[in-house]
């Protein structure tokens, strides 16, 4: 349902008339983009769970280098809230079933290339995800992290463009390969040229 909503928003966005540009866009620019949205994990099956929150907040900050050439390279740092669960599990330690609280989140550091066509930006990147898991049970708390290889891809549409700034919607897909964790995030994006030359 959310995916269909994303499709609808993207289609509608393209039908909004573009606002008039100011001067001729600069030939080269360093652009900073921020993304904020809601994330949902794919294939999240939590055994023995009492309750599970699938996904949460997704935030990202990226820097793009725009030039007259075909693709714009970018670097991005992101935060993804992946899941949280309450579970009742038999730990096999002779204490019967125990209450377990889990939560997971990730920081993504990716780089790749972006393609701008009219008011649409398409991006694909690879990089690393620092995946964190917190566990609380039997009075003990632990937080672990592991660095995994992963991908990110996104599509953004900017119905509102003013001089050096643009505001729009974005859908992104990410995959943390080693952890076999995939997610989709939908939200808003705001960008502007920090330096142009």
């Amino acid at each position: 349902m959310r995916a269909l909503t994303a499709v609808g928003l993207l289609v509608l966005a393209t039908l909004v008339p573009a606002t008039s540009f100011g001067a001729e866009p600069p030939k080269r620019a360093l652009e900073v983009d921020a993304f904020g949205g809601i994330l949902r994990r794919g294939n999240l099956t939590v055994p023995d769970d009492v309750s599970t929150r699938n996904g949460g907040l997704a935030l990202a900050l990226a820097v793009h280098y725009r030039s007259r050439y075909f693709l714009s390279p970018f670097l991005e740092a992101a935060y993804y809230s992946l899941a949280a669960s309450d579970r009742v599990v038999d730990l096999g330690l002779g204490s019967g079933r125990s209450y377990v609280l889990n939560s997971s989140w990730a920081f993504g550091f990716t780089g790749g290339a972006a393609l701008d066509i009219w008011r649409v930006r398409l991006r694909v990147g690879v990089g690393a995800y620092d995946l964190f898991v917190r566990t609380v049970t039997l009075g003990a708390r632990s937080t672990v992290s592991e660095l995994d290889f992963g991908y990110v891809a996104s599509a953004s549409v900017y119905p509102l463009v003013r001089d050096r700034f643009r505001v729009g919607f974005e859908a992104r897909v990410g995959l943390v390969v080693e952890a076999q964790t995939g997610f989709i995030a939908l939200g808003a994006t705001l960008g502007g040229d920090a330096i142009s030359f």
């Binding site: 669960s85 889990n102 632990s142 952890a179």
Partner: peptide, 25 residues
């Protein structure tokens, strides 16, 4: 890792976790 273990919260290394958390996750 998915090669050997399952669990949506099964990450990190053995040395990072107490036994009950390994068993839980």
């Amino acid at each position: 890792g998915p090669r050997l273990v399952n669990g949506p919260y099964c990450h990190g290394s053995v040395a990072d976790l107490p036994l009950e958390h390994l068993r839980a996750n």
